[in-house]
């Protein structure tokens, strides 16, 4: 009983919270395989998204916020081919009028978008993910380059992206906001640790 109380006091000193029990956590194994077919394994790096990260996101992307499920501890996966790092995989959620859209982002070692796919998207327009010209707008771009695709309201995508998205403008803006938050949070929380995989 004493040990139990000591451990509880220790936990109170941490700032973790995650709404669902940890037994429900599942690694996106099939999706990482799809984004990095040559990978032999993945390396998890867990970091905490807290209120200071949230404030940095609000500062960098005015009019934006993080959904409460985005706070707490999250995993960035390093796709490995034996001992070589191929790139990174990060899953983030963005609120939409069809519930949360969960997107799996593959990033290269310079934190540019390499590819992406929906883990969960319940929009009737989810076929947007098969639109190569839409995806190509993202691929190879870093945070600053993608930020230039935001319109002046800071929420919606500008016409460069919307022209490619055809009849799915709302979902296109959701994907853009998710991409920006993913790149920003990856750099803020994991950037320093990831330097060892990209020593140049």
């Amino acid at each position: 009983m004493k040990i139990f109380i000591i451990v509880i006091l220790f936990v109170f000193s941490l700032q973790n919270s995650y709404a669902d029990a940890y037994c429900s956590l599942r690694d996106p194994v099939a999706q990482i395989q799809q984004l990095y077919p040559q990978k032999t394994n993945q390396l998890s790096i867990v970091k905490t998204v807290d209120s200071s990260t949230r404030n940095l996101v609000k500062l960098a992307l005015p009019s934006n916020d993080l959904h409460f499920s985005e706070l707490g501890q999250h995993t960035l996966y390093v796709a490995m081919k034996n001992t070589e790092a191929l790139g990174y995989v990060h899953v983030r959620s963005e609120q939409s009028k069809w519930g949360l859209v969960e997107i799996i982002w593959a990033l290269d070692k310079n934190l540019k978008i390499k590819n992406f796919t929906f883990q969960r998207c319940r929009s009737p327009k989810k076929k947007l993910i098969d639109n190569e010209s839409f995806k190509n707008v993202f691929i190879g771009k870093n945070y600053e380059e993608l930020k230039s695709l935001l319109s002046s309201d800071g929420i919606t995508a500008n016409n460069i992206l919307l022209d490619k998205a055809k009849d799915s403008p709302e979902l296109a803006s959701v994907v853009l906001r998710c991409a920006l938050k993913t790149l920003l949070i990856t750099d803020i929380l994991w950037g320093e640790e990831l330097k060892k995989f990209n020593p140049k």
């Binding site: 451990v7 509880i8 936990v11 029990a21 940890y22 037994c23 956590l25 690694d27 032999t40 394994n41 993945q42 390396l43 998890s44 867990v46 995993t75 390093v78 490995m80 034996n82 001992t83």
Partner: peptide
């Protein structure tokens, strides 16, 4: 009920 919920990933240089 009062409890501890823990999750730990074990890794090596080759991955998890």
């Amino acid at each position: 009920a009062l409890g501890l919920d823990t999750h730990k990933v074990f890794s090596s240089v080759n991955g998890d």
